[in-house]
Amino acid sequence: MAASGDTSVLAAAKAKSQKSHELASCVLKDPVFSYAHLQILTGNPHQEAIELDALQVRSYCTAALQQFLGIAGTAISIDTLKVDGADCWLRIPRDNLGAFSAAITAWRGTNENGVHITFQIKGCSDWLGSLVGRVGQDALWTK
């Protein structure tokens, strides 16, 4: 008899604990796009910061992709989401993120007015929110 009393208590407790109901659920397994955060670097650390614009970012990325993958690399779609000073955030098709990051890493850069310019990858992610949340983490540990 104690067993039947225990089951009724458990059933009542379970019914009481279900106050919320799931209305809808969604699982994103394979997002279509990935995101990259790049920062421009100059060969001279005493050089004043270079201000990027969307056209320069596109030009540098295209040069890196062409150097690394040839004409096929220039076909990779790149969307510039934001350019802020020396930083930029890009949207790339998820399937091309590996090739893109390899091209940016291998890019030897360019010389403009005697200043060597190249990119550093600050982060890559399938989720823009996690990438944007990393901004400022360097300052947290270095100051």
Rank of each mutant, 00 (worst) to 15 (best):
M1E: 11
A2I: 09
A3T: 13
G5K: 11
D6C: 01
S8E: 10
S8M: 06
V9K: 09
V9Q: 11
V9C: 04
V9W: 05
L10D: 11
A11N: 05
A12W: 00
A13D: 07
A13C: 03
K14S: 08
A15Y: 01
S17I: 05
S17R: 14
S17Q: 07
H21R: 10
H21M: 09
E22P: 01
L23H: 10
S25R: 11
V27F: 04
V27S: 02
L28E: 14
L28S: 10
P31E: 08
P31V: 08
V32H: 12
V32A: 15
V32G: 07
F33V: 11
S34E: 02
Y35L: 02
H37M: 13
Q39I: 15
I40V: 12
L41W: 04
L41K: 10
L41N: 03
T42P: 06
N44K: 03
H46F: 10
L52G: 01
A54T: 12
L55P: 00
Q56S: 06
V57F: 01
V57E: 04
R58W: 06
S59Y: 05
A64F: 08
Q66P: 02
Q66R: 11
Q67A: 03
L69K: 03
L69V: 05
G70D: 02
I71E: 15
A72P: 03
A72K: 13
A72M: 12
G73F: 03
T74S: 15
A75S: 15
I76F: 01
S77L: 05
I78C: 12
I78P: 05
I78K: 02
V83C: 13
D84A: 15
A86F: 03
A86Q: 12
D87M: 14
C88G: 13
C88Q: 14
L90S: 02
I92C: 02
D95M: 14
N96I: 00
N96P: 03
L97V: 12
G98W: 05
G98A: 13
A99K: 00
F100E: 03
A102Y: 00
A103E: 08
T105E: 00
A106P: 00
A106F: 00
R108I: 02
R108S: 07
G109S: 04
N111M: 08
E112M: 07
G114P: 13
V115I: 14
H116T: 11
I117S: 00
T118K: 02
Q120V: 06
I121V: 14
G123N: 11
G123D: 09
G123M: 04
C124I: 15
S125G: 08
S125D: 10
D126A: 15
D126K: 12
D126G: 15
W127Y: 12
W127A: 07
G129R: 00
G129S: 01
S130R: 06
S130C: 07
L131A: 01
V132K: 09
R134S: 13
V135S: 09
V135E: 07
G136H: 01
G136N: 02
Q137M: 13
D138C: 06
D138T: 10
D138G: 04
A139M: 04
A139S: 11
A139V: 03
L140Y: 08
W141P: 00
T142I: 02
